[in-house]
Simulated scan of single mutants.
Amino acid sequence: MQENDRVTAIVPEAIGWRRHIHANPELGFAEHETAAFVAGKLREFGLAVHTDISVTAVVATLTRGTSRRSIALRAELDALPIKEAAKVEYASRKDGVMHACGHDGHMAMLLGAARLLAESGSFDGTVVFVFQPAEEVLGGGKKMIEDGLLARFPVEQVFAVHNWPGFPEGHVGVRAGPQMAAVDDFEIAFRGNGCHAAMPHLGDDPLLAAASFVTAIQRLVSRSVDPLSPAVLSVTQIHGGRFNNFVPGEVKVEGTCRFYDRALSDHCAAEIERVAQACAAMHGASAALTYKRGYPPVVNSPDGAALAVQAAADTVGADRVLTEFQPSMGCEDFAYLLQAVGNGAYAWIGAGDVGPGEGLHGDRFVFNDAVIPIGIRFFLNVVERALPPGG
């Protein structure tokens, strides 16, 4: 890794920012203190700061030279509804809320890059720094676009990073094409006539319908999707009944579908409906499906991925940049920005091996502060590559 005294000098301060944010986590669309902290730092650095874009979002701009070209760099503000079990001195002060995904670290990286670019950045054009709310589940990126982010701050490319436990520490991974999956959610209410457990012949049994659905729906992936097109369906919740001597009249089944091919969304919805109705009919019950189309896949454009690979090589050396690896079936709402802009990339920064419960969304997750300077350097190099002086 190339030494960069400017980055090295601010790393202790950036770690301090991260740990302050970590100790004071906030959930999606309620990141008021976090947004205020971020906005305050950006104003301190001398950037033009805007907090009137979308809910708790913070957007800042920095312009150098005369070029009308512009790019966006994005980080996330929100934490997760998880009770922290990690024994660190800066642990969450809010019971049941925790930065268990590293968004605090991503903010620190982007703040560090903003500070250094403001002090002595060598580029020609405009950098738009996007600190978005509610990445987790609630789709804050989509709302920012709907609220006019890109109409107000049009950009040619957009970039983001994510710390990635399990990926080799000190390496950066970025690939052209899908890097994260799309996700849809479903809920099925199986309904029938409840009855006493001693007299099952007097009612229907939605539990049997739900149980048969849970096993039968696995054919969706194994028998109805091309095996060369990755897809996964997971049933994650079953709710029904209150007493051990009464068969309930309603049972709800919930889960998710994940895939890289967005066309599979319609296929999954139709197949889940078909199997649910068949299972319900078999047991004399009814089924009502609610299918929610969620985040699209994170698809890096060829040009965006190529630039990110160059910036990563500038950051950690070409031998530590990985472009061939298995994408994740996890999802990320950065997909909305990539889809709307049409050019850019999402990169993973390896955080090294972790144990059970210490990975992303684990209650013992501890962000690896060693990746902060990598993230800062990566953002700086993206800007230099995308907006070269005189370009």
Rank of each mutant, 00 (worst) to 15 (best):
V49L: 06
V49P: 05
V49H: 07
H50Y: 15
T51I: 06
T51K: 01
T51V: 11
D52N: 14
I53H: 03
I53K: 08
I53E: 13
S54G: 14
S54H: 14
T56W: 13
T56C: 14
T56G: 15
A57L: 02
A57I: 02
V58E: 07
V58P: 03
V58Y: 07
V58K: 04
V59K: 02
V59H: 00
V59E: 07
V59D: 02
V59Q: 03
A60W: 04
T61K: 09
T61I: 05
T61D: 11
T61L: 05
T61C: 05
T61E: 13
L62H: 03
L62S: 12
T63W: 12
T63F: 09
R64C: 04
R64P: 10
G65H: 00
T66L: 06
T66Q: 15
S67D: 10
R68L: 15
R68C: 13
R69C: 11
S70R: 15
A72M: 09
L73F: 03
R74F: 02
R74V: 02
R74P: 08
R74G: 11
A75C: 04
A75F: 00
E76S: 14
E76V: 13
E76D: 15
L77Q: 12
L77C: 08
L77S: 03
D78M: 03
A79T: 10
L80Y: 11
L80F: 11
L80W: 10
P81N: 13
P81G: 13
P81F: 12
P81M: 13
P81L: 09
I82M: 07
I82P: 12
I82K: 12
I82V: 15
E84Q: 15
A85S: 12
A85L: 15
K87H: 14
K87L: 14
V88P: 06
E89W: 10
E89N: 14
E89K: 14
E89M: 05
A91G: 10
R93G: 14
R93S: 10
K94Q: 09
K94A: 11
D95L: 02
D95Q: 06
G96K: 01
G96D: 04
V97Q: 04
M98F: 12
M98T: 05
M98N: 05
H99V: 12
A100L: 02
A100T: 13
C101P: 12
C101E: 10
G102Y: 01
H103G: 02
H103A: 04
G105D: 10
H106Q: 12
H106A: 08
M107S: 01
M107P: 00
M109D: 01
M109E: 02
L110C: 08
L110G: 04
L110Q: 12
L111V: 07
L111E: 00
L111P: 04
G112A: 06
G112S: 07
A114D: 05
R115Q: 14
R115C: 00
R115K: 15
L116T: 02
L116N: 03
L116H: 05
L117C: 11
L117N: 09
A118D: 04
A118N: 03
E119K: 06
E119A: 11
E119L: 10
S120I: 01
G121W: 01
G121H: 03
S122W: 00
S122A: 15
S122N: 13
S122H: 05
S122I: 06
F123L: 10
F123C: 11
F123K: 07
D124Q: 10
D124W: 06
D124S: 09
G125R: 12
G125K: 01
T126F: 09
